[in-house]
């Protein structure tokens, strides 16, 4: 008898739990890549003007932070400037029984920033990787002045850091690489130091010069321009992504559909990135 009462109490608890949790909230939260914050805020701002009932809340923190928030359920959309990792997909499978939904929403090129006074104007991908890995430490090794190279980069939670590490450095960053909170800070640091080098979104390169990037010794140096990034001839080109736990519905779907429409894609170049087509 006692057991029956206990079981009945448990069932009531469960039903109450279900009831409380189905409270509907018509708000879309977007979290993740700092690279995408301005773009995402622009999208949200214009979308909310056109759809006064919609509420889109955008925050940064880094791609890793956004994907972690998606996995733990605290955001609807994770912005990421790198592809999702296998380990993150495994966590989505374990928690939500889905593979996640990947939506490429814009294109971006990663510039290699050099000080304007630096005589070096182009580097191969391998040289850039070796510089950031600490294997090349003096500019004279790549045709520059006899001066130590000062490195600036992003924090490990940044998708830009992850993408650059996986595709260019391909090993650990040099311990001497100073991490700064955001691409603007990197540009500012490179602007002030003639022997420095940094990386970040092509749109941020103001007051510094873009380094031409060669795929290898025999390839021509390519500068990150709208044309080379759109055509993916610039070697460090990437997609910017939105990730979801499962297929979007309701307001989230409407927002994403609008981002992928000509109206949403048309805003991308205004903030320095490039549309998908």
């Amino acid at each position: 008898m006692k057991t029956t009462k206990l079981k009945a109490a448990l069932i009531v608890m469960v039903v109450m739990g279900i009831g409380f949790s189905f409270t509907a909230i018509n708000k879309v939260t977007v979290k993740g890549s700092d690279t995408m914050v301005i773009l995402s805020q622009k999208w949200a701002e214009v979308y909310m003007k056109k759809n006064p009932g919609a509420s889109i809340q955008v925050t940064g923190g880094g791609s890793g932070v956004g994907l972690a928030a998606l996995i733990n359920g605290s955001t609807d959309i994770a912005n990421s400037s790198r592809p999702i990792k296998t380990s993150e997909v495994e966590k989505l499978k374990a928690r939500y029984n889905t593979m996640g939904v990947e939506i490429p929403c814009a294109k971006d090129g990663l510039s290699i920033y050099l000080n304007k006074a630096n005589p070096v104007s182009s580097l191969t991908l391998k040289q850039i990787g070796q510089i950031f890995a600490g294997k090349i430490t003096n500019w004279k090794e790549v045709g520059g002045a006899d001066a130590s190279i000062k490195l600036y980069g992003r924090e490990s939670s940044s998708g830009t850091f992850g993408f650059f590490k996986d595709n260019v450095v391909k090993t650990d960053f040099s311990p001497s690489c100073q991490t700064l909170p955001g691409t603007a800070a990197i540009v500012n640091a490179v602007k002030k130091d003639r022997n420095s080098i940094g990386y970040g979104g092509a749109a941020y390169a103001e007051g510094v010069k873009d380094c031409g990037v060669k795929k290898d010794d025999k390839s021509p140096a390519i500068l990150p321009t709208a044309a080379t990034i759109k055509s993916k001839t610039y070697p460090i080109t990437r997609y910017l992504y939105m990730y979801l736990k499962s297929k979007p519905t309701g307001e989230t779907k409407a927002f994403i559909d609008w981002i992928l429409s000509p109206a949403g894609q048309g805003l991308i170049e205004e903030v320095g990135y490039y549309p998908l087509k």
Partner: peptide
């Protein structure tokens, strides 16, 4: 075998 299918939310 593990099958994951996104049908009205996750199903496996």
């Amino acid at each position: 075998m593990q099958v994951y299918y996104d049908f009205l939310g996750g199903t496996s």
